[in-house]
Amino acid sequence: MSIEVLGITVLWTFLFGYLIIASIDFGAGFFSYYSTITGKRHLINNIIERYLSPVWEVTNVFLVFFFVGIVGFFPDTAYYYGTALLVPGSIAVILLALRGSYYAFNTYGVNKNNRFYMLLYGASGLLIPAALSTVMTISEGGYIEVNNAGKVTFLVRKLFTSTYSWSVVLLALVSVLYISAMFLSYYADRANDRGAFEVVRKYALAWSGPTILCSLLVFFAIRGHNAEHFDRMTAHAPLFVLSFACFLVALYHVWTRKRLGLSFIFVMLQFGFAFYGYGSAHLPYILYPYLTIHDNFTSQPMAIALVSVFILGLLLLIPSLYLLLRLFLFDTKYVQGKRGK
């Protein structure tokens, strides 16, 4: 494995981490608000709060890690994406800022369960993934134009009128809700909270079908948009078949209400296979057709330094993350709310 492939794999892995844990968070925000409207809030709010409280800050870090890392490994991405994404990027930042701070105000402040806070939290849970998913769309090419003087222009109108772009947004939304509901089913089951479990299990089952339909939609939309990428994806067909198989296994376990931890592992595998399949077919392009991992890679000494720091950092992070999970995810007493704060 060359060092540039190693670099992009590391970054992609962090993005995958963000995809999973941020989806849980975003979806939980939506369900939390939705349950208020449908009068089921008292059933599911406890488990949502118990899981989210200690981990919300960690979620953001995955994203920061990704965009700082990509500028380090592939400095030219800052120039192309930075110039093009001023408006959508800023909107995403504002939504993230509102979401994060109002979550803290609501959870730690005196005025708990403020309706306005809840609405912000729920709505941003859907808008942020929609905004962020457009970066993936843009990376397929066709939405950024570079003239002879090197000036980068972002073709907003084209993005908003493209079928491909909207199919990606749709997939992002339903995936968020599906991943989140699948996780909450597992968490409610662990907490031994039957009432909550039955509610979130229904959400999980309801969003499973749309997830697969939207995946197929994107698969075909990409053929119309970037045929080259589509061809390479079909060359990776076994990965996508595996992804679908994992989906069936995960769904089976939620359906039969058995072994929900295993079920969530299969959800992660389902998205893992699809995400890495999509990603490896995307290579060598980071931005079609302007940036590739080979031509726009950072200097050799910087790459070596970044990789070394990354390895040292992981040695620090993995035990810490394990401790966090042990205390709040794998500790049955905490999950069941039997521990004082």
């Binding site: 994203l63 994406y81 990027g89």
Partner: peptide
């Protein structure tokens, strides 16, 4: 959240 904002703004405003 403001730290995330400045982190992204560096690339958005100073590409």
């Amino acid at each position: 959240v403001t730290g995330t904002a400045i982190g992204l703004q560096l690339s958005l405003l100073w590409p």
